[in-house]
Simulated scan of single mutants.
Amino acid sequence: MKLRQKVGYVGLTLAAVGLSLNTLAADPVTPKLTDRLSQLLQQEMRSIQSAMASIHVSMVTGEHERVETKAQQIHDSFIMKQALTEQDKKDLMSAVPEGFVKLDKDFHRLAAGLAEAAKDKDTQKQYELYNEMTGSCIACHSRYVSDRFDGLAEQ
């Protein structure tokens, strides 16, 4: 498939995600989080943001090892794998809907796939997975953090 067709496909996919967000919008989870969980999630999001930026540059310059390292870091940052107390886990599960947890798990699964694609030096697969991860970020932020990202709340 030609790059132009692939870019068009990604655009259509993101448009479909955007169109579905209106009907899937949920109440923001931020106000329901404990201070500790809010801090942990913000820390994880800053780490992911930095890694995603690094992955983009590394992917387009063919630095497969760096893509692999950063994608693996994203996978490993999964909040459910962090050192949460039993109370933290209970608080998290009562604050976020099942859809939030599913999106988060899927996002980190995509990151593991991206690390594997980078290990295989498969730039095309890296591109596809990176775009899926970006779509996942938009979907989650639009549905569950629209109070922080009002530009996405208008989707």
Rank of each mutant, 00 (worst) to 15 (best):
residue 88 D to R: 10
residue 113 G to S: 03
residue 2 K to L: 06
residue 92 L to P: 08
residue 12 L to V: 13
residue 26 A to P: 00
residue 114 L to G: 06
residue 69 T to M: 12
residue 130 Y to S: 04
residue 14 L to F: 08
residue 58 S to R: 05
residue 116 E to P: 00
residue 69 T to I: 02
residue 109 R to I: 14
residue 36 R to C: 00
residue 88 D to P: 02
residue 2 K to G: 11
residue 48 I to Q: 06
residue 28 P to A: 14
residue 30 T to R: 05
residue 84 L to C: 10
residue 134 T to Q: 09
residue 19 L to K: 02
residue 40 L to D: 00
residue 126 Q to E: 14
residue 128 E to M: 12
residue 142 S to A: 15
residue 106 D to N: 14
residue 74 I to N: 04
residue 21 L to I: 11
residue 150 D to L: 03
residue 125 K to H: 07
residue 94 S to I: 01
residue 93 M to Q: 13
residue 7 V to I: 11
residue 36 R to N: 08
residue 66 R to L: 11
residue 10 V to R: 13
residue 142 S to L: 04
residue 133 M to G: 11
residue 110 L to S: 14
residue 107 F to R: 12
residue 78 F to V: 08
residue 14 L to E: 07
residue 115 A to R: 09
residue 61 T to L: 00
residue 25 A to R: 14
residue 2 K to P: 05
residue 149 F to T: 06
residue 64 H to E: 01
residue 95 A to K: 07
residue 9 Y to S: 07
residue 92 L to N: 13
residue 30 T to P: 00
residue 65 E to H: 04
residue 129 L to F: 01
residue 87 Q to G: 05
residue 65 E to F: 11
residue 8 G to N: 01
residue 77 S to L: 07
residue 62 G to E: 02
residue 87 Q to A: 11
residue 136 S to K: 15
residue 108 H to V: 15
residue 100 F to E: 01
residue 54 S to N: 01
residue 75 H to D: 11
residue 131 N to E: 09
residue 61 T to R: 08
residue 56 H to V: 03
residue 149 F to W: 13
residue 8 G to I: 03
residue 112 A to K: 15
residue 35 D to Q: 14
residue 103 L to E: 12
residue 46 R to P: 01
residue 126 Q to N: 06
residue 142 S to M: 09
residue 97 P to V: 02
residue 9 Y to I: 08
residue 140 C to E: 04
residue 154 E to A: 14
residue 40 L to V: 05
residue 141 H to Y: 14
residue 51 A to C: 01
residue 64 H to I: 01
residue 129 L to M: 04
residue 3 L to G: 00
residue 155 Q to Y: 08
residue 112 A to H: 08
residue 83 A to F: 12
residue 146 S to P: 00
residue 123 T to L: 01
residue 15 A to G: 08
residue 50 S to D: 08
residue 131 N to A: 11
residue 11 G to L: 13
residue 108 H to G: 12
residue 45 M to C: 01
residue 44 E to I: 15
residue 59 M to W: 04
residue 56 H to N: 11
residue 53 A to C: 00
residue 56 H to E: 15
residue 141 H to T: 14
residue 22 N to I: 03
residue 72 Q to N: 13
residue 153 A to M: 02
residue 69 T to K: 11
residue 105 K to L: 10
residue 1 M to Y: 15
residue 107 F to N: 08
residue 69 T to W: 05
residue 46 R to D: 14
residue 41 L to M: 04
residue 34 T to S: 15
residue 14 L to A: 06
residue 119 K to Q: 13
residue 107 F to L: 15
residue 151 G to C: 03
residue 91 D to E: 15
residue 30 T to C: 03
residue 152 L to N: 10
residue 70 K to R: 11
residue 6 K to N: 05
residue 100 F to A: 02
residue 134 T to K: 07
residue 129 L to K: 03
residue 152 L to A: 09
residue 87 Q to F: 03
residue 61 T to E: 08
residue 26 A to D: 06
residue 81 K to I: 00
residue 105 K to S: 11
residue 93 M to I: 12
residue 28 P to R: 06
residue 39 Q to I: 03
residue 124 Q to A: 13
residue 35 D to P: 07
residue 83 A to W: 12
residue 77 S to I: 05
residue 16 A to P: 00
residue 117 A to R: 05
residue 103 L to T: 10
residue 33 L to G: 06
residue 146 S to W: 07
residue 15 A to K: 09
residue 13 T to L: 14
residue 28 P to Q: 02
residue 24 L to I: 13
residue 67 V to Y: 09
